[in-house]
Computed example of a mutant assay.
Amino acid sequence: MTTTTDTVKPLTAEQAELALILTGDFHGPWGAGLNEIAERRHTVIDTAELERLRKAARRLHLFEEWANEGYAPALVFDDDGRWAVSFTSASPVPPDGGFTDTEQISVLVEPHEWHDSVNAAIDAAQKEEGQ
């Protein structure tokens, strides 16, 4: 008899990362769910790759942490290849149940907040916020 695990091909590290991001399967300290994903899918992820994936998971969840602390973080791209995380924005107050129409939100970005990658922008915002 063939079981499901016998017919499932192992995930690549990129597929495991995508699965983690899409499912929010974190279980415990940041990115600990990666070990479970790897074990379930028989994926071998070396220590350096596992640490990179944990950092990616942590960056993603920083936005939820900031929002829970009362901030309104915005990840912005400038069409010139640069990224920024801004905590300065203006938007209408959403009605109960959220917006149902298109709304305009203005985001202010200081020159020092622009970075060449998403990761660099998030890391800089994290340092600035002292986390």
Rank of each mutant, 00 (worst) to 15 (best):
D78Q: 09
T88I: 05
S86Q: 07
G97R: 13
G81A: 05
A90D: 14
P73C: 05
A57Y: 01
G97E: 12
E65H: 02
R58I: 00
G81K: 03
T88N: 14
A90I: 07
T88G: 01
G97S: 09
L75N: 04
D80C: 00
R59Y: 04
G70D: 07
V93N: 08
S89W: 00
R82N: 13
W83H: 15
P73D: 03
F87Y: 04
L60A: 02
E65K: 06
L62Q: 03
F87S: 07
D78E: 11
G98Q: 15
E64M: 04
T100I: 05
S91Q: 14
F99R: 02
R58A: 01
D78L: 09
G70R: 06
G70L: 10
D80I: 02
T88M: 12
S91M: 13
F77M: 10
L60Q: 08
D79N: 14
N68Q: 12
H61R: 10
D78R: 01
V93E: 15
V85I: 07
D79F: 08
F87V: 10
P92A: 12
P73A: 04
A72I: 14
V93I: 10
P95Q: 09
A57H: 07
V93W: 09
F99M: 06
T100N: 13
G98Y: 11
G97K: 13
V85E: 04
R82K: 15
S89A: 13
F77P: 02
A74N: 14
P73F: 05
R59F: 02
F87C: 12
F99T: 01
L62D: 06
N68R: 13
V93Y: 03
E69M: 13
E64W: 01
D80G: 02
R82G: 04
W66E: 02
A72D: 10
S91D: 06
Y71I: 03
Y71F: 13
P95T: 08
A56C: 02
E64A: 08
A57V: 13
V85Y: 11
W66L: 08
A90V: 11
A72R: 15
T88P: 03
E69K: 08
N68D: 14
R82A: 11
W83M: 12
G70T: 01
D96Q: 10
L75D: 04
K55I: 08
E64V: 05
S86A: 13
W83V: 10
N68Y: 11
A72P: 00
D96F: 06
A67C: 00
R82M: 05
P92N: 11
G81I: 08
A84E: 08
F77K: 08
D78T: 06
S91I: 00
A57S: 03
R82T: 14
E64N: 10
W66R: 04
A56G: 01
F77L: 12
F63G: 02
L75K: 03
D79C: 05
